[in-house]
Design a protein around this nucleic acid. Sequence first.
DNA 1: TCGATCTTGTAATGATCAGTCAAGAATGGC
DNA 2: GCCATTCTTGACTGATCATTACAAGATCGA
Lengths: 194, 194
Amino acid sequence: MAGTRHFDTDDVLTKATQAFWRDGYEATSIHTLEAATGLGRGSLYNAFGDKAALFLAVLDHYAKTVGAAPLVHLANPDVRAGLEAMLRAIAARMDTPGRPRGCLLTNTCLAPAGQAQVEARIANLMGGMQAALEAAFRRGVETDQIPPGTDVTALARFYCAVARGIGVSHKAGANLEALTSIIDVAMRAFPAAQ
Amino acid sequence: MAGTRHFDTDDVLTKATQAFWRDGYEATSIHTLEAATGLGRGSLYNAFGDKAALFLAVLDHYAKTVGAAPLVHLANPDVRAGLEAMLRAIAARMDTPGRPRGCLLTNTCLAPAGQAQVEARIANLMGGMQAALEAAFRRGVETDQIPPGTDVTALARFYCAVARGIGVSHKAGANLEALTSIIDVAMRAFPAAQ
DNA sequence: TCGATCTTGTAATGATCAGTCAAGAATGGC
DNA sequence: GCCATTCTTGACTGATCATTACAAGATCGA
């Protein structure tokens, strides 16, 4: 029953992500992770190290897959349309049945893991979204889609906060229609083209 | 050393609130609560019941004091000014030194999986804020401060989401200046008076 | 003054937690 | 075909968790 690895790392990370996403870092025990991944204790510790190290791997896996997907819309030359598409993609992702509610990063940020390394990683990943937004908005200023002199940092902070607020609202029970109406209002804060 | 109660209930609740607010529901142990309140195990269980019941009392205490304070601004006849004052009061409250970061309700809105009663209470308290906003906006429509036909429910949901987003941002490390800039942008989504 | 009642501190309980370790089993290199 | 390596398994450890039981002390009504 042993000798070579019996699992695919990405597959195990996906399953572990679901568990952490659903229950949070503290409430997810090694026993839960055994059940979710189908691996034994020893295999988990052998492959990933301790619980905190596994969670770091989960965070990276989440950021690369679930978290990065909506950001591709920011590549849209129409900055406003790209922003709106990103927000709607986030809302649509949350509405996906079978997925845990809210956003793993936001959920974990609210219920801290107590591990300094984990908190630093979360701050880093969250900062990445704000930086991506800010870069898109700066490009919008350069291409005359956004009025010059606009505080693009504040604008990025705002839409980051909206995305986080959407995550919390969904975690608190909001449905897709409620999230959509939030986005409709939020887009009114986007500076008008000149 | 015993016979009559040696503590003030409100004082103990305030101290317990600080502990839950800082560390979250799960990470706050009875031992932590003993140290924070100065009471022994027996006194805590005798006075409040188990941990979940104590947390329910803490939630109500928080809602009555910290949570309700910013909402008084909504009584302002100028609806837009009242809304802005409320948001700035929330940001200023977060910046208060010595206070735990973020908002207790937002921080724990996902927390105790399995404690249906706690989740219901949080949903109820959160819904109260949205209802207060919606009532103010409806009054704004009646007094011609907000265009007729405005979706006041969506508007209330949006500013609720902004408040939650501010809480998450602060929890994630944002300072007062960052929170203020978020509010500046958010106010641009408010419908113009006719 | 005395007993009933309540508060309080401490010890103990059973469950669960993260993490470790020795031993068995299967593989790949030789 | 044999051996070293790697992986899996399941039992074990010590710590910590929420909760309860209990004894001792303090207060109050009668």
